[in-house]
Design a protein around this nucleic acid. Sequence first.
DNA 1: TTTATTTTGACAATAAGTGTCAAATATAAT
DNA 2: ATTATATTTGACACTTATTGTCAAAATAAA
Lengths: 103, 103
Amino acid sequence: MKESKTTGEILREEREKKGLLLRQVAAMLDIDTAILSKIERSERKASKEQIIKLAEILELDEEDLIVQFLSEKILYEIKDEELGSKALKAAEQKMKYNNKNNS
Amino acid sequence: MKESKTTGEILREEREKKGLLLRQVAAMLDIDTAILSKIERSERKASKEQIIKLAEILELDEEDLIVQFLSEKILYEIKDEELGSKALKAAEQKMKYNNKNNS
DNA sequence: TTTATTTTGACAATAAGTGTCAAATATAAT
DNA sequence: ATTATATTTGACACTTATTGTCAAAATAAA
């Protein structure tokens, strides 16, 4: 069974579907080709601004791509943590709790 | 209704319960008093190593304190994000999904 | 008021993130 | 096989965050 796609994999797939070159997309983002190459292979993380531009360039749903990007960022924080799963659940609880009492 | 406690609040409460001074606990942690003061007021974040030492010094359950610490770290990542809640849920999903396929 | 504790803010050192560039590698076309 | 184009890699530089020290200011306790 296949794992869920990384942001990089999504970006590469869509770029290739559109027949765009790294060079071309990198130019639109105003960064070096090397960085985009690294982003697509998950060697580096994109910034939020880059993600937004990429959604536009590749005609991906912006909200979906941001959620994808943020969730990856969250998982990165706890990737080596044994208690990561518990921490995630605790975070959700706190978020609920705090929302309830502010809104 | 009171919000859930921050790590800093927990640490301060427990330190005061034990009648320990910032100076004393900071010395045990081998950091300056100023930093511990800032940690307790959530002006700075403790490192994981410091959290572990603090659990021991203050006789708090280590696992609980780490979960508290990590969940705060996660929430910090998404604190200004409109899509934070969706991202958290997505992260949980991915975590489940990946666990299922590796273990 | 004196003494002890805590807080604040300026600063320094280090680590992490973000980018450029050029050379190496891989892919595609002649 | 050669050439041309695209991608990857790694060394380096620049910038921003993080983590700490120190000393002075503020607060609290004797």
